[in-house]
């Protein structure tokens, strides 16, 4: 029975199948919201109100010709999309969605899983850089360097921000942190600055406007993905969607009290809370222009990092006071 449960966990929920279906749904929601903000319709033709459009795009890309540039480092070029997709899929397994209790520890829930999930979410950035490097294209190289530069800008504020709720809850385990805030819902309000920083840095991690600097189409064509086509590009696009789901799930688990109530209510909470995060991300994308890389770095270190540090100080003092 346990083995069956593990297989279900890996392959169905919250594993491969769920992440694939839900990430395409989230992409559709994002596209629809973005379109609504811009007074457009968005996808309309595939499925009801275009709900199948992301899947259609995925299938179409999978069927397209797969070109590897002559000058490219072929092994690296081919391996990078799989590596990156694997890392975000693994990160998805660490979300505390289903059979977690405070006491039960498993391979997907343990002390320190918050650090592991943060690092697994960072791996795609390195993969993008390697992809740009292996492509042997000027635009891809610039895109790859920009990915790393951007990483230096947002990574520290993001880690500081996700540290605050963990410090407050006194645990390094996502399930325990979520359980703490379910027990003390008012304590969620303490982390409000960290929540803002986490949302902004998540947007940067997902490389969406205003932080889509690494693949700004008017500047560097497709950035690190310039030379990618066919199913490798499809993998990169799918991984970006899954990264959005996992990132939104991480924020929901840390800052919104997680997904209580077992399988069905937990599932509903997961959908509702991640969609709230996606709504904020879409709105941010709609109302801003792309920053320049130097502006992003100074914004990050002048505002985001100090704000996250301030939050940490607040949390430490409040924790002392509350005890």
């Amino acid at each position: 029975m346990d083995i069956l449960k593990i297989f279900l966990y890996l392959l169905v929920y919250p594993g491969l199948l769920f992440l694939f279906v839900y990430s395409t749904f989230v992409e559709w929601v994002d596209r629809k919201l973005y379109a609504k903000f811009q007074n457009r319709m968005g996808p309309m033709h595939t499925g009801s109100h275009g709900i199948l459009q992301p899947i259609a795009d995925f299938v179409k890309l999978m069927a397209k010709e797969d070109i590897v540039p002559k000058e490219a480092d072929k092994k690296l070029f081919n391996a990078v999309p799989i590596l990156a997709l694997t890392s975000v899929l693994t990160a998805g397994l660490l979300l505390p969605v289903w059979h977690f209790s405070d006491t039960f520890q498993s391979a997907t829930s343990f002390q320190g899983d918050i650090i592991v999930i943060a690092y697994l979410l960072s791996l795609p950035s390195f993969a993008y850089f390697l992809a740009g490097w292996a492509s042997a294209s000027m635009y891809a190289a610039i895109g790859g360097v920009r990915v790393l530069t951007l990483l230096f800008a947002y990574e520290v504020p993001m880690f500081l921000a996700i540290l605050s709720p963990a410090v407050m809850a006194g645990s390094w385990r996502l399930a325990e942190i979520a359980a703490y805030y379910q027990a003390n819902p008012w304590h969620l309000l303490i982390n409000i600055f960290a929540f803002a920083v986490a949302i902004i840095t998540l947007q940067a991690k997902l490389e969406r406007v205003p932080f889509d600097i690494p693949h700004a189409e008017t500047e560097v064509v497709g950035g690190a993905f310039t030379e990618y086509s066919g199913r490798k590009l499809a993998m990169f696009r799918l991984l970006a969607d899954i990264q959005m789901v996992v990132g939104a799930g991480l924020i929901a688990a840390l800052f919104m009290g997680g997904f209580p109530g077992g399988l069905i209510p937990g599932f509903i909470w997961f959908i509702v809370k991640t969609l709230v995060v996606v709504f904020i991300l879409s709105a941010m994308r709609a109302v801003t222009a792309r920053l320049r890389i130097d502006q992003m770095i100074s914004f990050s270190w002048k505002w985001l990092a100090p704000l996250a540090l301030l939050q940490l100080v607040i949390v430490i003092f409040l924790k002392g006071y509350l005890q």
Binding site: Q38, N39, V209, A216, V287, A289, R290
Partner: peptide, 9 residues
Amino acid sequence: VGFDTFFMY
């Protein structure tokens, strides 16, 4: 400059 909402409006 990546501000597509302005473009659409």
